[in-house]
Structure formats: C-alpha cells, structure tokens
Amino acid sequence: MSLRFQPRSLLTVAFILLFSYIVVESSEMPIQAKMYPYTIGIIALLLLAYQLVREILPAAKTETDKTGVDIDFTAEESSKQGKRRALELFAWMYGFALLLWLIGFYTAAPLMVLAYMLRHKETLVVTIALPLGTGIATWYIFGHLLHLPFPPGVLLEWAGLV
C-alpha cells in the first residue's frame, strides 16, 4: 500500500508542527498558563493526525476542496494561469509592504496605485485620477482628520527629508 502525499497536505503538516510546538512550549509553563493551550493543543493534534491519515492513505475517500460555507477555491484559481496571477498579486502586496516601510504611507499608497494602473494599461484619466484620489484620501482623511501617526519611511528618515 503506497502513501499518497499531496501538496495540500503541507498545510496539515504545518499545523501539526505548530500545535506540537504549542504543546511542548506550554509544558514548561505554570499550570494556570499551560492548562488551556495544552488541552487545545492535544485535542487539535489528535484531529490533525486523523486528518493527515485521511489525506495520505490511498484507501481514504477523496475529499473535495469545497468547503461549502466559505468561498470555495475555483477552477480558475487552481489553474497554472490562476496560480501565476495569484503569485503576481502576492508580489504586489509584499512589494507594497516594502515600499511602505521604505518611503512611508503618504508616498507609497499613491505610488503603488499609479504603478498598478500603468502595469494594467489603464486610461490616462484613471491613471492620473485614482492615485491622486488615493493620495489625497490618505493624507487628508486618515492623516489630517483622523490623525493616524503614519511612519515616515526609513529612506526618507535616512535622507533627512522628514
């Protein structure tokens, strides 16, 4: 009987490692602090072991990825093209996070929107209006009216511009 390890089981394994860490780490704590994580951790580990066996045993019935209540992963998303687009969006997200850290919210937010518009070849009006609107909203509504203390960005600080 050969086992069938699928990529999606990686998440199950990751959860097993996480809950194992919780159980091991909490065993060092005083009883008041460890009782709860210990209980939850052990129950979850038992359920995860059952889940992993279901996923890797060839005899186990194939479980669909559909969760029913939550929004299901579509065929489009599972395709190679879908994964490539998702990867690109993750790059945009983490690139945006890096930009926020480097040059701060006031500059990074409109700049990201502008770059996104240029990348997707939006019309000139939209390419100008949307980043401008985003910049004004960030500065006026969130900075000026709501007084959110946006960090200035390490590059601007280093350059002495703020």
């Binding site: 945006f96 937010a109 929107v113 949307l130 985003t134």
Partner: peptide, 9 residues
C-alpha cells in the same frame, strides 16, 4: 489597488 490601500490603512 484601492482595496489594498484600504486594507493597509
């Protein structure tokens, strides 16, 4: 991009 900015803020 607009939702992303809203999510970050």
């Amino acid at each position: 991009p607009v939702i992303l900015v809203m999510a970050v803020i």
